[in-house]
Amino acid sequence: SGEEFIAMYTYESSEQGDLTFQQGDVILVTKKDGDWWTGTVGDKAGVFPSNYVRLKD
């Protein structure tokens, strides 16, 4: 389980282990570690910068 966040911006990365997503995607955040959080979008999982998302209303 985790908290749902909304992507405010598209995040694209070629780094292994990074979670890429489109603006407006719902991200289920499973771990918060400083500026880099872990989460899932659909069947993808990985880390992403926390300043790209906001808490879902």
Rank of each mutant, 00 (worst) to 15 (best):
I27N: 07
Q22D: 11
V41E: 02
T40E: 15
T40F: 05
W37I: 01
Q22P: 01
R54I: 04
E15H: 12
T20D: 07
G17S: 11
K44F: 02
T10Y: 09
Y11I: 01
D33R: 13
D57H: 07
D33N: 09
Q16C: 10
D57S: 12
W37L: 05
Q22T: 10
T38H: 05
F21H: 03
L55C: 03
K31I: 05
F48G: 01
P49Q: 05
D43H: 14
D35A: 12
A45P: 01
D18E: 13
D25G: 00
G17L: 06
E12N: 09
S13A: 11
L28R: 14
D35H: 15
A45C: 13
G42E: 08
V41N: 14
D57F: 01
Y11P: 05
E12I: 12
D57T: 15
P49L: 02
E12K: 13
R54E: 14
S50R: 15
D18G: 14
G34E: 04
T38F: 13
G39A: 02
G24F: 08
G46R: 02
S50E: 01
G2D: 09
S13F: 03
F21M: 03
M8D: 07
V53L: 06
E4I: 11
P49C: 02
Y11F: 12
D18M: 14
T30Y: 05
S1M: 09
V41A: 14
L28F: 11
V47F: 05
Q22V: 11
V29I: 05
I6L: 08
K44M: 15
T40C: 12
Q16M: 15
W36P: 03
G39H: 00
L55A: 13
V47E: 08
P49E: 00
K56G: 10
G39Y: 01
D57R: 04
G42A: 07
Y11D: 02
M8H: 05
D43I: 09
V47N: 08
G17Q: 04
L55P: 15
L28N: 10
V29R: 02
G46C: 04
Q22N: 15
W37Y: 12
Q22H: 12
E12T: 10
W36C: 06
S1W: 04
G2V: 08
S13M: 01
T30N: 12
S50F: 05
L28I: 15
R54H: 09
K44L: 06
T20I: 07
K32L: 03
A7M: 00
D43S: 14
Y11L: 09
T38K: 05
W37G: 00
G2C: 14
T20P: 10
G42W: 02
G2H: 15
N51M: 10
V41M: 13
T40D: 02
Q23V: 12
T20L: 05
M8T: 08
Q23F: 04
E12D: 11
L55F: 06
R54A: 11
F48S: 04
V41T: 09
E12W: 12
K44I: 01
Y52E: 03
E3I: 13
T40K: 14
Q23P: 07
Q23A: 14
E12C: 11
G24T: 02
A7V: 00
G24Q: 08
G46A: 01
V29G: 04
D33H: 09
K32F: 04
T38A: 11
G24N: 06
T30H: 15
F48K: 03
M8S: 12
D18N: 10
K56N: 10
V47K: 15
T10D: 11
F5E: 06
T20Q: 09
I27Y: 00
F48P: 06
T20S: 13
W36K: 15
Q16E: 15
M8Y: 02
I6V: 13
M8R: 12
V47L: 13
D43Q: 13
E3P: 04
K44A: 05
T30S: 06
K44N: 03
V41H: 15
D25T: 10
D35Q: 05
S50K: 06
V47A: 11
T38Q: 09
D35K: 15
S1V: 11
G17F: 02
S14W: 09
G17W: 03
F21W: 01
D33S: 09
I6C: 07
G24R: 02
V29K: 03
T38G: 09
D57P: 10
A7G: 04
G34M: 02
L28A: 12
I27F: 00
D25I: 00
W36T: 08
G17T: 08
W37K: 03
L19N: 03
W37D: 03
Q22Y: 04
V26R: 12
L55N: 08
D43P: 10
T20V: 09
S50A: 15
Q22M: 12
K56D: 10
L55K: 06
G46K: 00
I6W: 02
V26G: 04
T38L: 05
T38E: 13
K31F: 05
V26S: 12
Q16L: 14
D43K: 13
M8P: 05
S1I: 15
D33M: 11
T10Q: 08
M8Q: 08
E12Q: 14
G39Q: 00
V47G: 09
G39L: 02
S1D: 12
P49S: 03
D25C: 02
F5T: 04
E12F: 08
A7R: 00
I27H: 03
Q22K: 11
K32A: 02
T30I: 09
D33F: 06
G24S: 05
M8L: 11
E15M: 10
Q23W: 03
D35G: 07
I6A: 07
G24V: 00
G2I: 08
N51P: 02
D18K: 14
E4C: 07
S13V: 01
E3M: 10
Q16G: 12
S14E: 12
Q16W: 07
I27E: 01
G34N: 12
I27M: 03
E4Q: 12
Y52P: 01
Q22L: 08
D18I: 12
T20M: 08
W36E: 10
I6S: 08
D18P: 02
Y52F: 15
S1P: 06
T38R: 11
D43A: 12
G46T: 00
F21G: 03
A7K: 01
V29Q: 03
T40W: 14
Q16T: 13
F5K: 01
I27L: 07
W37F: 12
G17N: 12
E4G: 01
Y52I: 12
S13G: 13
D35T: 14
N51A: 12
W37A: 03
W37Q: 03
V47R: 13
K44Y: 13
D25A: 07
M8G: 04
E3G: 05
V53Y: 02
Q23M: 09
S14V: 13
Y52N: 01
Y11V: 01
D25W: 01
G42T: 02
A7L: 00
T10H: 10
G24H: 06
I27C: 02
L28Q: 13
W36Q: 13
T40H: 11
V53T: 04
T20W: 06
A45S: 15
V53I: 04
V41L: 11
R54P: 03
T40I: 06
E15P: 04
G39P: 00
E12R: 09
D33P: 02
Q22W: 05
G42F: 05
L28C: 11
R54L: 07
D25N: 05
T40V: 11
G2K: 15
N51T: 13
E4Y: 08
K44T: 03
K56C: 14
D35R: 09
F5L: 04
W36F: 08
S50L: 01
L28W: 14
L19F: 06
L19V: 05
G2S: 14
D18T: 12
V41F: 14
T10F: 04
S14D: 13
F48R: 02
W36R: 13
D35I: 11
K31W: 03
G42M: 05
